[in-house]
């Protein structure tokens, strides 16, 4: 496998793995929570590093995923006090945790190579250098396997718990009444999101994980009304963005992750304008058509009223004369 192919493979896997839980984030109106989590996992990684002093230890991944769930919990606890709005709670929690992470890194980890830039901005181009070697045989880049496992987890979780995820996104109270604890499903989903973020940030950087998680689902949201199709379409759109983004980056020789995010924006823009039913053009056209129909209807009403009046013509004219003479 050539490095170029490996990079694209990793990117596609990451894109699909991100877009699946992203669908539920969008439907639950929690898109900005992904932004929050992508920032705070840095603290989890730093704390994990202090415990193990080993950058490749799985504890780091665990710590990061745990920190994602803690972020969600903190944000919700804060907004449950009803002393502030939910969006404000998000905006308070993540900068604090992120600041602590940055401070810890600059103060104590300066001697070690824990680069904030690579965490935040990611570098997919280096992924193929880290090889997976089993029994002396090179079986491909390590990232293919880590992100592959992630994708497997997400796909399995969504297939197994599809019904529960669907109902709790649509109507949490009904789902509680039917015996599916919304809290359990919620934190399950959030664990999925954190794990995915952790797995993905190494490849694309934490800020752009947001583009991967939210971009394809909201693009798909404009194309379909069925949850199943939305999941499928998101995965497809995510994969397409990844490949096109990589090609563009290779052509212009710029940041791969950034280019994929831009591609996400472009596909969204195209769909936003031209989507068959929910797009900008068709909405405008429908509105104009509606206006025309109104005009026709109004005209019909007038004719109808006129006809009705003819019968009462004599009466009406008598009334009219009376009022005028007053």
């Amino acid at each position: 496998m050539s490095p170029q192919f490996e990079i694209q493979l990793i990117a596609v896997i990451v894109a699909v793995a991100c877009s699946l839980p992203g669908v539920f984030l969008v439907l639950r109106k929690m898109s900005m929570m992904s932004d929050s989590i992508t920032h705070t996992i840095l603290l989890g990684i730093v704390l994990g590093f202090f415990m193990t002093h080993n950058l490749s230890s799985p504890i780091l991944i665990l710590g990061a995923a745990l920190m994602g769930v803690i972020t969600v919990w903190l944000t919700e606890t804060l907004s449950r006090t009803r002393l502030l709005a939910e969006d404000a709670a998000i905006g308070i929690v993540f900068p604090l945790l992120f600041s602590i992470a940055i401070i810890l890194i600059t103060r104590y980890a300066g001697s070690v190579h824990l680069d904030t830039d690579s965490v935040l901005l990611g570098e997919l181009a280096f992924a193929p250098f880290d090889r997976m070697i089993i029994g002396g045989v090179d079986i491909g880049a390590k990232a293919i396997y880590t992100t592959g496992i992630l994708l497997l987890i997400n796909v399995t979780a969504i297939i197994v718990f599809f019904k529960e995820l669907e109902i709790s996104a649509f109507d949490p109270i009904l789902s509680a009444l039917l015996g599916f604890s919304p809290a359990l499903i919620h934190y399950g989903l959030m664990t999925c999101v954190s794990l995915t973020t952790v797995g993905a940030f190494q490849a694309v950087g934490s800020i752009l994980v947001v583009a991967f998680m939210i971009g394809p689902p909201i693009t798909a949201y404009l194309l379909t009304d069925s949850l199943k199709y939305m999941l499928l379409l998101s995965a497809l759109i995510g994969a397409a963005n990844a490949i096109l983004g990589y090609q563009a980056a290779a052509f212009f020789d710029v940041s791969i992750a950034g280019s994929m995010a831009v591609m996400t924006g472009l596909t969204f823009l195209l769909v936003f304008i031209f989507a068959p039913h929910h797009g900008f053009v068709s909405t405008l056209r429908r509105r104009n058509q509606l206006k025309l129909e109104f005009a026709k209807m109004t005209f019909l009403f007038h004719i109808y009223n006129q006809e009705g009046n003819e019968r009462n013509d004599c009466k009406a004219s008598v009334d009219e004369i009376q009022t005028h003479s007053h």
Binding site: L290, F294, T298, F301
Partner: peptide, 14 residues
């Protein structure tokens, strides 16, 4: 002659 519609749904007619 007031007619109001929200997107595709007529709400007030004439």
């Amino acid at each position: 002659d007031l007619t109001v519609a929200y997107d595709a749904k007529p709400v007030l007619w004439e």
